[in-house]
Each structure stands twice: as C-alpha cells, then as structure tokens.
C-alpha cells in the first residue's frame, strides 16, 4: 500500500538525522536547517535502499522538495 506523504517525510527525517527539524512537503531540501551536501548523499542512499530507485544530480535539481520527490518515487514504482 502506498505510504502517505507525511510518512514519507518522517522516514526522510529519521534516515537523515533531521528528525528535530521542522519542514513540510513544499520546503526545498536545500532550505532545510542542517541540510548540506552530505544530506543529498544520504537522500540518494535512502531512496535507493528503500525504494530501489537511484537518483542522480539532475533528479535532485528537478525533485527538489519532499512532495516532488514523493510523486516521482511513486510514479516509478
């Protein structure tokens, strides 16, 4: 069953150790507090490990907030 966008965001928070940071589905990743280049790597590894999709640099530019990424991930599944 498809997870909700809220659960998707929670899982990003847990996997990237930003669980105390407040952001919503429309917050650009690069504007999230504590987000840096290593966070992009972590996001890549998380999406590969949990959804079997390998993102690249252009994908991260295109799907630059949780909602866009969520929609992309579920369009590929």
């Amino acid at each position: 069953m498809e997870e909700t966008i809220e659960i998707f965001i929670d899982r990003i928070k847990q996997n990237l150790n930003v669980d105390t940071v407040i952001f919503d589905m429309n917050t650009p990743f690069k504007e999230i507090e504590k987000w840096d280049s290593l966070s992009n790597m972590g996001l890549l590894a998380f999406i590969d490990q949990d959804y079997g999709i390998i993102l690249d640099y252009d994908d991260l530019l295109k799907y630059d907030n949780p909602l866009k990424l969520y929609n992309y991930v579920y369009s590929k599944k």
Partner: peptide
C-alpha cells in the same frame, strides 16, 4: 567533482 553523480554511478 560532482559527488552526487559519482555516488549515483557507484550505487548503480
């Protein structure tokens, strides 16, 4: 270095 693309390439 484009670290993201290198990481992506490696995982693939």
């Amino acid at each position: 270095m484009n670290g993201i693309n290198l990481f992506s390439f490696t995982l693939k």
